[in-house]
């Protein structure tokens, strides 16, 4: 079997562009997912069941339906309500953010609730407010425990950004498919794509191990 490196070389600039798009939408998904997820996680921890309800249904919906369906709904349903010409990359970034927020919310909630309640009591008994106790006592301990599940979630997110292909968002997978279509070849484009994703996810997992080590030794 011959392996046509010339296809990879020819498509290298496109793969490079695709890589930037993939990194861009993944970063957007991580950053906005974290912000939105913290907010939703706090909402779901409310002691008031009426306040809790919308947050838990947000999580139910985005965890319980396929991401590809969410991407199609966002790109062809929600985005046209706001923009005449929806941008596929923007739609993908929005979908990934909304989706990862649901998982992030649960990671936050589980992390915070895993801290012994004696820690909050000790902090409050010293005269700290609830917010101070959260900030100085609960969150620093909880965040450490959240590193592995966050890494897990964001690795999934990077890989799932490949679903942007269905709305023609020009990320790596989109260019892989384009190359495969043009030359009617399978191995060269898809192995290249797989390799690039592997590099991205491995870097993230290395980063996670580094953070874990850094914070476990205090």
């Amino acid at each position: 079997m011959d392996f046509r490196f010339d296809i990879i070389v020819e498509y290298a600039p496109y793969f490079w562009q695709g890589l930037l798009v993939t990194i861009g939408v993944s970063l957007a998904g991580i950053v906005f997912g974290l912000i939105l997820g913290l907010f939703i996680g706090l909402g779901k921890m409310s002691s008031n069941p009426i306040i809790r309800l919308p947050f838990s249904w947000y999580i139910n919906f985005f965890r319980g339906t396929p991401l590809v369906v969410q991407i199609l709904l966002v790109h062809f349903g929600a985005m046209p309500l706001f923009f005449a010409q929806p941008n596929a990359v923007a739609s993908l970034a929005v979908s990934l953010s909304l989706n990862s927020a649901a998982y992030v919310a649960e990671i936050f909630r589980a992390g915070i609730q895993s801290i012994d309640k004696g820690q909050m009591e000790a902090a409050r008994s010293l005269g700290m407010t609830h917010a101070q106790a959260m900030r100085y006592i609960i969150l620093p301990q909880a965040l450490k425990r959240m590193i592995p599940p966050f890494a897990n979630e964001f690795i999934v997110l990077i890989k799932d950004s490949s679903l942007g292909m269905v709305i023609a968002a020009p990320e790596i997978m989109y260019w892989g498919k384009a190359a495969a279509g043009e030359y009617y070849r399978v191995w060269e484009p898809y192995l290249t794509v797989a390799f690039i994703y592997l590099l991205l996810t491995l870097s993230l997992s290395k980063l996670s191990h580094y953070l874990e080590r850094k914070y476990s030794t205090q």
Partner: peptide, 13 residues
């Protein structure tokens, strides 16, 4: 009002 707990509840971090 200071309080001392059975399980100490020192801040481990």
């Amino acid at each position: 009002v200071g309080m001392v707990f059975q399980r100490f509840n020192l801040f481990p971090h």
